[in-house]
Nucleic acid binder design. Structure first.
Length: 158
DNA sequence: GCCAACGTTGGC
DNA sequence: GCCAACGTTGGC
């Protein structure tokens, strides 16, 4: 299976690139995702070694700020069973967990953020899921070509 | 803060 | 199964 690429959205107020860098081994569980389409990607598609574009939403401007690597493929999101977690889902059956997480490790910080308006202008990114009208999916597929273009926009080849 | 777009819920 | 109401996301 060839390496694939993804874009993960995060509100930096909640958990941003800096938080990832400060995490033990620069690794974090990507948990708390509560959308079925995103869940399916986490559970079924994302594999160890896949590349991640780390995107800051809700920031001015929104931007891809770094890359990460998947270091653990989909596993049941523990927060769904954690009574103290705001992500708890009392309806999820441990025998058949509803929500999944992956682990990611920081790769490298981009030399400069690649902003949303910049991506909208970039040739080759026209079909990027992120740029679709009303696109709110927090876990998105990225093509190999899009991955390269975004990193090239940051000033270094991918 | 506003609001468009989207997903989920629940009455019927 | 339909669809209105509601809550959330996220760009601006």
């Amino acid at each position: 299976m060839a390496r694939r690429f993804w874009l993960l959205k995060s509100d930096p107020e909640t958990f941003g690139w800096e938080d990832l860098l400060k995490s033990p081994r620069k690794t974090t569980a990507w948990d708390g995702v509560r959308n079925y389409q995103a869940r399916n990607l986490l559970r079924d598609e994302i594999r160890v070694g896949d590349g991640v574009l780390f995107y800051h939403s809700q920031s001015a401007p929104p931007a891809v700020v770094g890359t990460a690597e998947v270091v653990r493929a989909g596993y049941p999101d523990p927060t769904q069973f954690d009574a103290r977690s705001k992500y708890r889902d009392a309806d999820s059956d441990p025998a058949e967990p509803r929500w999944y997480a992956v682990d990611i490790r920081a790769g490298r910080e981009l030399d400069r953020p690649v902003t949303l308006p910049e991506m909208r202008e970039a040739p080759g990114l026209e079909s990027m899921v992120l740029l679709r009208r009303g696109s709110r999916l927090s876990v998105q597929p990225v093509t190999a070509a899009e991955w390269k273009i975004v990193l090239a926009l940051a000033g270094r080849p991918g």
